[in-house]
Every structure is written in structure tokens, then in C-alpha cells.
Design a binder for these strands. Structure first.
Lengths: 153, 153
DNA sequence: CTGACTGCAAAATCTTTGCAAAGAC
DNA sequence: GTCTTTGCAAAGATTTTGCAGTCAG
């Protein structure tokens, strides 16, 4: 699903956010945001850590900083996460069109989809239960097309 | 949501399952199943451990056995789990009508709901993506009615 | 009896925290 | 300069595993 906002704008907003909260703009924070923006996929904290180590070996970075920054970015709704039971979470860039996920049990891959009628129905359900909805996730698990093909060969 | 199967039948199936897999029928396994069946709610492994310790103090039980048994029961689709990111999973009896969850961020409570049109739509989405669906979850997070009332007081 | 099961404690994961040194403004 | 941020290593939290004794069939 395409990003609906340019990196320049994301960065501008991020800097503004930092400033207004009396936080500093650091190389580590920029790189973590950039990696997530550029690679439009779903990453574990460790993935992000490794990607940065690989692409920017000259930058000092600890895994703790990745966790701290992801929390920061998630609180600001710049990234969002999807959890996998005991096996941790994956993060993706959050400022794109809302969507849900198809998660493949074989390869761990994630596809995205958006369905208008489901979105509408969720609002109705929350209303019916007098529930003040702040978020909702839908995850369909199964086997993706590629892995089905692989198996029959 | 009501259980659609009696405990006798559940137990009978469970024993059959154990036998056919060359597994033993033990007090611990029975109690874990029973606690989940009787208390129609959503429990962490620790909840279950504590409930049994409390109700059956004479039975020896280690937390590891709870985890092992829950895995066994989940593989057999007798219980199902819902995950909470870093904070682990909760388990519920699985052999009842399919349903989804409303999760309260304030009190951690869980309400259940079932919506026909969402179920149908999920099947269509999977088909559209050539995805072989084995399971699907929908979780609406927000604030439940009780907690909203509490706040305004 | 025999092999599966259990509790215990140790290990394994994943994530968070304390702290002294480094860096942003 | 001041105050936040960082990396490191240690601590937490949750779940899994190894093992010797115990128990079901």
C-alpha cells in the first residue's frame, strides 16, 4: 500500500514533534524512521537494527535505542505495530491508508488489504456495545498464494 | 457466549485425543481443561495456574505444565488464544460459536461479538487474494461502557 | 514394567531499565 | 553548559527446556 505522504513531510512533522516535546533530533532516530519509511514492509525491532547496521555501519546503535524509538514513533502514530503472540511484534510505517493484514503461516509474509464494508461494520459493532473504539485490527491467517504453489511442486 | 457442547462430551473427546496420540490422561490435564471450560472467560497461563492452586490446593502443579497443556489443547483446537503484544496471551475455551473480541484498554476486559457480514466478507477477501484462510481474528480496542462511566464520575 | 508426564530450576526470548559517557541545542 | 540520548550490560517478564523422579496404563 503506497505511502500517502512524502519523506520530507514525515521528517518535518517528526522534527516538529520532537521539538514540541523537548526531545532531540538524533542520527539514530532519523535512521530508524527512514528505514521504516523506505522499506515499505513489516519489520521486527531486530530487523530494523540489522538493516541499519548493514546500511550504515559507521553509525553507533544499540538495540535498546531501536525499542525506545519505536515506542516513541508508535505513540506519535507515525508507525504502527502488529503482534505475533509470544514471538514479538512487527512494525510498519503508519501514515498510510488504513488497512488490515493477511499473514502467511508458512513464510511469515504479510499482505495488506482494505475493505470498506468491514470498516463500516466495525463502527456499528462498537456502537452497539457502547464501546468507545480507539483502534481495531483484523488479521487473516493462512497460507499465501506463493506458499501454496510451492507446496504442490 | 454459551458453550455449545457439554463438559462430558469435551472430556470424552479429550480422552480420545490423548489415547490416539499415545498420551496419558492426568489430573493436571483434566483440571486445566475443566477450569477453562467452567470459567467462560479469557485467562493467562498464570491465571489458570493460580485458579487451580486456589481451587485444588492438594494437586501438585507447575507453571510449565500449564504452558505445555495449553499448547496441546490449542493444537487440538480445544482452546484458542488471543495475544496482547508483549504482555502475553489469553486463552479461552475454543469449542463454542465463532466470535471476535472487543478489548478494553482500561480494565483489560474482553467482550465477545459475532457479526455475520464480517465473517462473509473475510471469506471473500481471502479468495480475492488467493489466500488459503485457516483462521482470522478481529480485535476492536477501546474503552468499554463500564470504564467510560467510571471516568465521568 | 515401560514410556509418558511432572515439578523444579535453569535457559531462552524478547523487551526494558540504570548508568556513565556522548551529543544536541 | 545543560539536559536529553545513547550504548552497554544487567534486569525483567514471559515462555520453554533438561532432567530425575513419579505415575498412568
Amino acid at each position: 500500500m503506497a505511502n500517502t505522504i512524502s519523506y520530507e513531510d514525515v521528517l518535518k512533522n517528526f522534527k516538529k514533534l520532537l521539538k514540541s516535546n523537548n526531545l532531540k533530533y538524533t542520527t539514530q532516530r532519523e535512521l530508524i524512521l527512514k528505514i521504516i519509511y523506505d522499506n515499505s514492509g513489516h519489520f521486527t525491532p531486530e530487523d530494523i537494527y540489522n538493516l541499519i547496521k548493514e546500511s550504515y555501519p559507521e553509525v553507533k546503535l544499540g538495540i535498546a535505542t531501536v525499542y525506545r524509538t519505536l515506542t516513541l514513533l508508535e505513540d506519535a502514530h507515525i508507525v504502527s505495530s502488529i503482534s505475533f503472540g509470544t514471538q514479538g511484534k512487527k512494525y510498519e510505517f503508519g501514515l498510510k491508508e488504513h488497512h488490515d493484514h493477511l499473514v502467511c503461516l508458512e513464510c511469515g509474509g504479510i499482505e495488506e488489504f482494505y475493505d470498506e464494508s468491514i470498516e463500516k461494520q466495525q463502527v456499528l459493532i462498537a456502537k452497539k456495545h457502547n464501546f468507545k473504539m480507539t483502534n481495531h485490527i483484523m488479521k487473516i491467517t493462512g497460507v499465501c498464494e506463493a506458499c501454496q504453489t510451492k507446496k504442490t511442486n
